[in-house]
Amino acid sequence: MSANSADRPALVEVVLVKAGRTKIRYPAELVADDGTRVTVRAPWAGDGVRDFGFVRFEPGDVFTEHYWRDRWYSVKEVRAADGTLKGHYCDITRPAERSGDRLVVEDLDLDLWVSADGTDVRRLDEDEFAASGLEAADPRAAAAAVAALDELDARARAGRLGALLG
């Protein structure tokens, strides 16, 4: 191993699975893994700009993503290319699984957006979740997903979302 390789950050491949299929995969810098929470950093991995109306994800944005092995969500801090905080995008997921340089996360459709100043908290994709059939196929997972969304929503509205990330 050369002296340079020791200075390079470790990379992991983040694999987001939805309804049994890979939705997206991308390389990310491994920031930390304490055995429970895995934190990675990656540039916006989508194609072009994604305009939600209340926020735009675009080339140059940087996502610092926090995944838990024991919680049913992930929290992604979204910053513009200039470092300005746009907000936090929270995905409701099954607990993350890391094996070597792969981090696999199953998206369960529900999402939460929290603006940088915390004044805009939005529950997203509840219609997709209802249509997914998860409640019938896996009632325990569906209940855990709804409870996770409720927890994040309550934390965000109380100004305590950041406490998860420290």
Rank of each mutant, 00 (worst) to 15 (best):
G87R: 01
C90M: 09
R157I: 03
E58Q: 05
A137D: 08
D33Q: 03
L149M: 08
V121R: 12
E106Q: 13
D117E: 13
A137L: 08
V49T: 00
E97D: 15
V17H: 12
E135T: 12
P59L: 05
A158Y: 09
Y67Q: 04
W113P: 07
D91V: 12
P9C: 02
F57H: 02
R140N: 10
A19N: 08
L103A: 09
V55C: 00
G35F: 02
A163V: 15
E77G: 11
V38F: 01
S132P: 13
W72H: 05
L16Q: 12
T93A: 01
L108T: 14
L85M: 08
Y67H: 09
N4V: 13
A42I: 05
R50K: 05
Y67F: 12
S2D: 14
A96W: 07
D111I: 11
A10T: 15
E151C: 05
V62R: 14
A96K: 07
G166R: 11
V55T: 00
P27H: 09
P43E: 13
F129P: 06
K18G: 07
A136L: 04
V40S: 09
V121T: 09
V49R: 00
P95C: 01
V114N: 14
A131T: 03
A96S: 03
A137K: 06
D33E: 06
W72N: 04
K23H: 15
E97W: 12
A116D: 12
A81Q: 14
R79N: 06
G83H: 04
A6C: 11
D70E: 08
G162S: 01
R8Y: 12
L30N: 01
V75E: 07
D51I: 01
P59E: 03
V49P: 00
D111K: 11
W44L: 00
W72Q: 02
E65L: 10
D125T: 12
G162N: 02
D7P: 05
A145I: 04
V55E: 00
R71M: 06
W44Q: 00
V146K: 15
G83E: 02
W113A: 02
T39S: 07
D120L: 15
D109K: 11
K23Q: 15
A143T: 13
V17Y: 11
E126S: 13
D109T: 11
W68K: 04
D7C: 14
G83K: 04
G166D: 14
A28R: 01
E58R: 02
A141K: 11
G48S: 00
S99Y: 08
H66F: 09
R123K: 10
P9I: 04
A81W: 10
L110T: 03
G35Q: 02
R41S: 10
F57I: 01
P95Y: 00
D111G: 11
A130T: 10
V75D: 07
R98E: 05
L134H: 07
E97R: 15
D138A: 09
E128H: 11
D61A: 05
D47W: 02
R21G: 08
V146E: 15
R37F: 07
L30F: 01
R94Y: 08
V17G: 08
G83P: 05
L11C: 09
L152E: 05
F63E: 08
L16M: 14
R155Q: 11
F129E: 05
E106R: 13
V38K: 01
W72A: 04
L134V: 12
L164D: 03
V31N: 06
R25A: 14
L161H: 02
E13N: 10
D61L: 03
A130M: 12
D70I: 08
L152A: 06
